[in-house]
Every structure is written in structure tokens, then in C-alpha cells.
Amino acid sequence: MAERVRVRAMMPPGHVRAPSYLRGKEGVIERPLGAFHNPEQLAYGLPAEKKPLYRVRFRMDELWGKAAENPGDTLDAELYDHWLERL
């Protein structure tokens, strides 16, 4: 059973790699990708710790509601662990 997650809905200013259209949305972890340096520190020239990165799969109806062209189509995006809440 795939692990369900929700993207955190926080909206801090500055450079983050979690697209705003995914914040607050629920999906499942498609695969872990390993650990990568945190872009939110790299972007400001700071020493960056490694954070686990995941590919998360979302259904289009979760993202766009009734406006989805086909509710069962999916979207995958890469999200860092600190942007995910386990459900």
C-alpha cells in the first residue's frame, strides 16, 4: 500500500522547490530518490544539509477538482521530506 502524504500548505517567501499548485494537496509516494542538498539553503549560498527527496504522485482531480480533464490522470513531482506530512 503506497504511503499517503500531504504537501505542507505553508507559503514562506523566497526560493523553494515545492510548486504552489501542489501545496495542501494529497498524493502517494511513488518512489524515494535519495538525499539531496536542501535547495532552500543552497539558493542563499549557505551550507546545505541533505534532505530525503521523494517523487509524489497526485491525481488530477485532487489538483484541479471538477476542472480536471480526466480525474484519473496523474502528476508526479519531486518533493523534499520537510514539505510532506504523513497521513
Binding site: 522547490r17 510548486p19 530518490l33 480526466n70 490522470d73 496523474t74 502528476l75 513531482a77 519531486e78 518533493l79
Partner: peptide, 15 residues
């Protein structure tokens, strides 16, 4: 066709 599932991949980080 609707029977073909579309998977969009948003290259948001390191892949």
C-alpha cells in the same frame, strides 16, 4: 483516448 492514462512529470528538483 480517455482510456489512456496521462502521467505528467513536473521536474521540480534534482531529477
Amino acid at each position: 483516448p480517455d482510456s489512456t492514462r496521462i502521467r505528467v512529470h513536473d521536474s521540480t528538483a534534482d531529477m
